[in-house]
Amino acid sequence: MDTAQLKKDIIAYSKKIGIDKIGFASADVFGELKERLRRQQELSYQSGFEKGTVEERTEPERLLPEAKSIISIALAYPSRMKDAPKSTKEERRGLFARASWGTDYHVVMRDRLEKLAAFIKEQVPDVANRLMVDTGELSDRAVAERAGIGFSGKNTSIITPEFGSYVYLGEMITNIPFVPDDPVDDSCGECTKCIDACPTGAIVQGGQLNAQRCIAFLTQTKDFLPDEFRTKIGNRVYGCDTCQVVCPKNQKIDFHIHPEFEPEHGVSKPVLKPMLRISNREFKETFGHISGSWRGKKPIQRNALIALGHYKDKTAVDDIIKVMRTDPRPVIRGTAAWSLGKIGTEEAYMAIKEAMETEQDEQVQVEMEKGMAFQEVYQAKT
């Protein structure tokens, strides 16, 4: 087999099917990553969403015994929304992170990988491979770094020379022994803008993230959001882009190459109040095609309530009162009470006070007391 020519053919074909970057890496053990992951576990910095053991995440042969190489691919996505709708006093809007704009990237990336795998199989019928997009055991970033797609920035994102860090990543483990590509030199230098700008201090140091403090992770949790983070998430209903937005490597970077990733105004910047009463069916129909819907509507609704409190949206008081009184989910009722307290109208105060008389859930009662405490502070000031 002429692997050098096959590699050239694969690169040429990748461009035909809309892959923006492709790189080839060895399937050797990711020794440095293994130590970092163990350290992350010791410090309890992991999100809990990670798949597989440390060994499975760092030893490709555990996933494909005959592994010889890994092919890494990247697709660029937009960083700016054209004609983005504005929030108004009557219609406050939330925000999905850029990585959730357009069609779920898992679907798009897998389509590209499957086409690439089919092409390789035509050339090498007995090829063995395994495809992964984000939800696989391997670290997409570690593979992309080794394959020369980009370098791993202090914000823990892969930063490419062409597209900055606004790229989705996926990979294919294969039994074909390709010559690996050279890594890209790290060029973060002395810059610490991402570390300094992180709203919650989740970037502990360059390249090390405490996922438990990362807003991108926190917006996906389903329980009550810890108090210290509620004022930090602002109007984000899913994800966080701050560490990418401030990165000098991302300035003036905005690629609209793939129509699938173009944001829909009503989806990527949704009006918040309708989110409170959306049914499961409506949620699936409206948001089911984006990656930010994977945890269901509960975290999104909780975050919408926090955002309305952040805005102190008095026009939302009636809607939030109804949620507090009737929603069967304690997290949603409790967060609604907290939000009413933040908004701070007399109507909101009386509604919390009344609801406290019948509320049975202890956690919800605690949130109601927080809402009442906000009101008492406001009254003392006036």
Rank of each mutant, 00 (worst) to 15 (best):
T3F: 15
L6W: 12
L6K: 14
K7M: 11
K7V: 14
K8L: 15
I10Y: 14
I10K: 12
K15L: 14
K21P: 03
F24Y: 08
E32D: 00
R36M: 03
E42Y: 09
E42P: 07
E42C: 07
S47R: 12
S47E: 06
F49S: 06
F49Q: 12
E56I: 14
R57I: 10
T58F: 04
L63T: 08
M81H: 09
D83Y: 15
A84D: 07
S87P: 04
T88C: 12
K89H: 09
K89E: 10
R92C: 03
L95V: 10
F96H: 04
T103M: 12
T103V: 15
Y105K: 13
Y105R: 06
V108S: 08
R110H: 08
L116S: 08
L116R: 02
F119R: 04
V124L: 11
D126E: 14
A128D: 08
A128R: 14
R130E: 00
L131G: 02
V133E: 02
T135F: 02
E137P: 00
S139D: 05
A144W: 06
E145D: 05
R146F: 02
T160F: 01
T160N: 13
V167R: 12
D181K: 13
V184F: 07
V184L: 10
D186Q: 09
D186P: 08
S187H: 04
G189H: 10
I195L: 13
D196Y: 12
T200Y: 07
G206K: 03
Q208P: 02
Q212E: 07
C214R: 04
T219F: 00
Q220A: 09
Q220E: 14
D227M: 00
E228Y: 07
T231Q: 11
T231G: 14
V237A: 04
G239S: 04
G239E: 05
T242N: 01
D254P: 15
D254V: 14
I257F: 13
E260F: 11
V267Y: 04
S268R: 12
S268M: 13
V271G: 00
V271M: 02
V271I: 11
S279R: 11
N280V: 05
N280Q: 14
K284H: 09
I290F: 08
S291V: 01
S293C: 00
G296T: 05
K298G: 00
I306P: 01
A307R: 01
G309T: 00
Y311S: 01
D313I: 06
A316H: 10
R325P: 00
P328F: 06
R329S: 11
R333Q: 13
G334P: 03
A336T: 09
S339Y: 04
G341W: 02
K342H: 10
E346T: 15
E346F: 03
E346M: 03
A351K: 01
Q360K: 08
D361E: 06
E362K: 05
E362F: 05
K370F: 04
M372D: 00
A373S: 15
E376F: 12
Y378I: 15
K381H: 14
K381N: 15
